[in-house]
């Protein structure tokens, strides 16, 4: 097991004194280089967790550690250097008039010398496959391209962790795929820890582990296979069952001999193909 890079220890949080707890005694770790998806219904506490990871909020009870540093007023700037965030709406995240200005913005704020800035901007944009768009104006980009530039802006600051807070929910299917593929590459090639907050189970299925939030508490954590085995329970939690699982369940009802090892699209297709060849 890799070293844990994010640790929540008995964290509780409420937005104001009179409101109920948004997070109740939340405890979990994220390991260096993994992709963790956090899923849950609207209001389950997912986004509150994200805001506690880079000091947009501070825990009311308990502690948050990022790379062994305890989150506090004194450490918040060190922590923000390690944690980059990409938000939902691509149009609300652009500050520059061109793609390269936008990526340079964060570097300027950090006082990075110009020579290094040029290298980092180019490097970050190439990593998200936007290297050819340096001088493009943001409004000429598609949603997926804009979100990839947003990722590059975060990437140029060389973070250890990137949090995607519903970063694909406003994109069309093509844009969503572009962004998820970029994320996968970053994790693989640069060992960046990815935390994605999403309602989309197809997106969560690409993660190494999934954590389900329910009414401010961690309901369950496991790999995608474990999580999807929860089946109807997911629907009770306001989530959905992945398509392949729904289909397999129906086919089993009709007498097909499908087992747990075939619950991925390719495997299910393979099973039916082999079955057909026997005819």
């Amino acid at each position: 097991m890799n070293k844990s890079i994010v640790q929540f220890q008995n964290v509780s949080y409420r937005y104001d004194e009179n409101s109920p707890l948004a997070l109740k005694n939340v405890q979990f770790s994220v390991y260096e280089g993994e992709w963790l998806a956090i899923v849950g219904h609207n209001g389950s506490g997912k986004s509150t967790i994200a805001k506690l990871m880079n000091g947009l909020l501070f825990p009311e009870v308990g502690s948050v550690y990022i790379n062994d540093i305890n989150l506090s007023d004194d450490t918040v700037w060190d922590i923000r250097d390690m944690v980059g965030m990409v938000f939902q709406n691509p149009d609300n995240q652009f500050v520059g008039t061109t793609v390269q200005d936008d990526v340079a913005f964060g570097l300027e704020n950090h006082g990075i010398p110009r020579e290094e800035m040029v290298v980092r901007v180019q490097d970050a944009l190439e990593k998200v496959n936007m290297g050819e768009f340096l001088d493009q104006e943001p409004h000429h980009l598609s949603g997926g391209q804009k979100q990839r530039v947003a990722i590059a802006s975060v990437l140029a600051l060389r973070p250890r962790i990137i949090i995607l807070d519903e970063a694909t929910s406003m994109l069309d299917p093509r844009g969503r795929n572009e962004v998820l593929e970029t994320i996968r590459q970053l994790k693989q090639e640069d060992n960046i820890t990815i935390i994605s907050i999403t309602h989309d189970l197809e997106e969560a299925a690409r993660a190494d582990r999934i954590m389900i939030m329910n009414q401010g508490e961690v309901f369950h954590t496991g790999n995608p296979t474990d999580i999807f085995a929860l089946d109807e329970k997911l629907v009770e939690l306001g989530l959905d069952i992945p398509f392949t699982h729904k289909l397999a369940k129906q086919l089993i009802k009709h007498g097909f001999g499908i087992d747990d090892s075939m619950l991925q699209e390719d495997k299910l297709v393979d099973y039916l193909w082999k079955l057909q060849q026997k005819i």
Partner: peptide, 25 residues
């Protein structure tokens, strides 16, 4: 999408495209 993938693998047409899970099953 699933039906198309299956048809390509098998090399035969199964039916008209299924618009619901019930139809596909």
């Amino acid at each position: 999408r699933f039906q198309l993938k299956l048809e390509e693998k098998i090399g035969k047409r199964i039916a008209d495209p299924s618009l619901s899970l019930q139809d596909l099953v």
